[in-house]
Design a protein around this nucleic acid. Structure first.
Lengths: 189, 189
DNA sequence: TCTGACTAGTCATTTTCTTGAGTATGCTGC
DNA sequence: GCAGCATACTCAAGAAAATGACTAGTCAGA
């Protein structure tokens, strides 16, 4: 039941349409959760039925009309309750780790390629998150911003995203190197 | 469909019962995947029907009988295919991040407590993984082990687990500090 | 001697997530 | 002048994961 709370938390930053939310929750700016558009539309509908968000129609001339949602007081109360309840532990769950676990018994060629692609993707996210952080804190330096900034939630989760992607990139680079070396050592002993 | 491959990868280390697997996939030594016992039993049954693993009954005197599973050639081929296919990107998905995202609008007291608990738990995992890595590499130093070791898959995934937990711990400690400072600043301005 | 934890599972149900397809319009680039 | 992408959604179906409840014997400690 955390997707609903993720949606509520995302809507704290202002009004968003399902479509806008979907983009935030998808491409990778999703620094605190991930979900597909269909889930989000469904969740928004459910949240509205339960009165935790309210939507208003915005008529547009040149594009399809859209509905913007904001969190209601009941929604905020729900978030409050959620925050006070125990969290489920977080786990790594990654196809690529499964492949690396099996690396001694299978052909590592494709795995190495995927590690390198991942490293590049993670590097791009590192850049992106760095830029996002810079934008959010504006003029202030980080310490100062975190002490006195008004909206630091997204900044804090983005910090985690950044560290995660850095760790991911470093690991991918290192493991690709290790597996590559073992391959050449095997073929040319 | 990655649980099946996670199970196959786990069984590469030798024969395991569902119960043993469940422990590895649960408590947190699960450095490359996580699953509940029920899922594992179900998956093992399916894998056996499909001929990807084979189980043998082991009669025990003082404890309930058990079934030990090992990967078949077909299972290894399946893993091989899986490793060559594209991986889904990995995403962070963590209740606690959702709570931190909402931190500006809710009472941070419980969140701070949870961050500190998480930091402690992550610290314990860091210790555990460090110890596991030391055991796996034995006498050799890491570079040497990674160059010439026979079974390095679990070592490589454990390295990722270690880095993840370190990152998680550092972030929790830092964010708990930030939120704590803002609380005291607010009550005693 | 009773409680609780450990071994070793099974069964059923519900929730959540993913996949795939479809609608309709407008703008941009080749 | 049309292909392809962006906006803005909806519906249905299926796979995967989580939850809860249950069996049944062993062993250690209070």
């Amino acid at each position: 039941m955390a997707l609903r709370h993720a949606v509520l938390a995302a809507l704290l930053d202002g009004e968003y349409s399902g479509y806008q939310l979907a983009k935030a929750f998808d491409v990778g700016v999703a620094n605190f959760w991930h979900a597909l558009p269909q889930q989000l539309y469904a969740e928004l509908a459910k949240l509205e039925r339960e009165g935790l968000v309210s939507g208003r129609q915005v008529v547009q001339e040149t594009r399809p009309n859209k509905r913007l949602f904001r969190v209601t007081d009941a929604g905020l109360a729900e978030l409050e309750q959620f925050a006070a309840a125990v969290s489920k532990p977080s786990f790594i769950r990654d196809d690529l780790l499964v492949k690396v676990q099996a690396a001694d018994r299978i052909d590592t060629g494709p795995v190495i390629e995927q590690l390198e692609e991942r490293a590049a993707a993670a590097g791009a996210k590192v850049e992106l998150f760095g830029e996002l952080l810079r934008q959010m804190r504006g003029e202030a330096d980080e310490e100062e911003f975190l002490r006195r900034g008004e909206r630091i939630g997204p900044y804090l989760t983005c910090l985690r995203g950044l560290a995660f992607e850095q760790g991911h990139r470093d690991w991918c680079v290192r493991i690709a190197g290790v597996l590559r070396e073992r391959r050449t050592a095997r073929t040319r002993p």
